[in-house]
Amino acid sequence: MKLDKIINQPVIETERFVLRPLRRSDQGLIEMYAGDRSVARMTSSIPHPLPPGSIEALIARAQDASRVEDVWAIDGTHTDGSEIMGLISLKRVDTGQSEIGYWVAPAFWNTGLASAAVRALIAANPLESKTVFACVFQDNPASARVLTNGGFQYLGDAESFSVARNAAVPTWTYSLKLD
């Protein structure tokens, strides 16, 4: 029997949910939500259809002590919510700089969950970042609002490859300076 590894990643508590490191037991719910075409299409890294083993590999990477990206489950169980409502991550991109990424399950869209998760992670600043970057697809204005509601400033247009779409997709890039 494999046990979850203990990793050096903080648990971040809010009134509505807890941001916690991923566990092996999260695999089924993450597969269900990330396997949804509408979720995968709005990310650069989730393939659709979701290949077998991909979420198991994601969890293994998230538990690896030498990882460059910390991934948290948005867990609502302490308020009788779902154990997985989405994922949020911080990737180390340079000294003092990180990139935030997130997705929320469709059942929780338009509830303010993504905005609350971004605000909680930024307030905790577990990587002690001085600047946090983010990139969203231009056909996802809801994610852009999450960032602007969180104080992020628009930097410019770019493009990023979407695995689910198998195409380069126009993006908006944002940054947030933390003092």
Rank of each mutant, 00 (worst) to 15 (best):
M1I: 01
K2S: 15
L3N: 10
D4K: 10
K5Q: 13
K5V: 12
I6C: 06
I6Q: 14
I6D: 09
I7D: 09
N8R: 07
P10H: 09
V11D: 00
V11M: 10
V11G: 02
I12Q: 09
I12P: 06
E15C: 07
R16E: 09
R16Y: 10
L19E: 06
L22C: 12
R24K: 14
D26Y: 00
D26A: 07
I30H: 06
I30T: 05
I30S: 06
Y33A: 05
A34S: 06
G35Q: 11
G35Y: 01
R37D: 10
R37N: 07
S38Y: 07
R41T: 03
T43P: 03
S44T: 12
S44K: 04
S44N: 07
S45H: 15
I46N: 08
P47Y: 09
H48M: 06
P49F: 07
L50W: 11
L50C: 07
P51V: 12
A57P: 02
L58H: 00
I59L: 00
I59E: 02
A60F: 13
R61Y: 03
Q63Y: 08
Q63R: 11
D64M: 05
R67Y: 05
V68D: 08
E69Y: 06
D70K: 15
V71R: 05
W72A: 01
T77H: 07
D80V: 06
E83L: 03
L90F: 04
L90G: 11
K91C: 02
V93Q: 00
T95M: 12
G96V: 12
G96S: 14
V104I: 00
V104S: 04
A105D: 06
A107M: 09
F108P: 04
G112T: 08
L113K: 09
S115P: 03
V118W: 12
V118T: 08
I122N: 11
A124K: 04
A124N: 09
P126K: 06
P126D: 11
L127K: 08
E128W: 05
K130W: 14
K130C: 03
A134S: 05
A134N: 00
V136C: 02
F137D: 09
D139L: 11
N140F: 01
P141C: 02
A144D: 01
R145C: 13
T148S: 14
T148F: 11
F152N: 02
Q153W: 09
Y154L: 10
L155M: 05
L155A: 13
D157A: 13
D157L: 13
D157E: 03
D157P: 06
A158S: 03
A158Q: 13
A158K: 12
A158L: 06
A158V: 13
A158H: 09
S162A: 02
S162D: 02
A164S: 03
A167Q: 14
A168M: 15
A168P: 01
A168N: 14
P170W: 04
P170D: 11
P170V: 08
T171N: 02
Y174A: 05
K177C: 12
L178A: 01
L178I: 15
D179G: 13
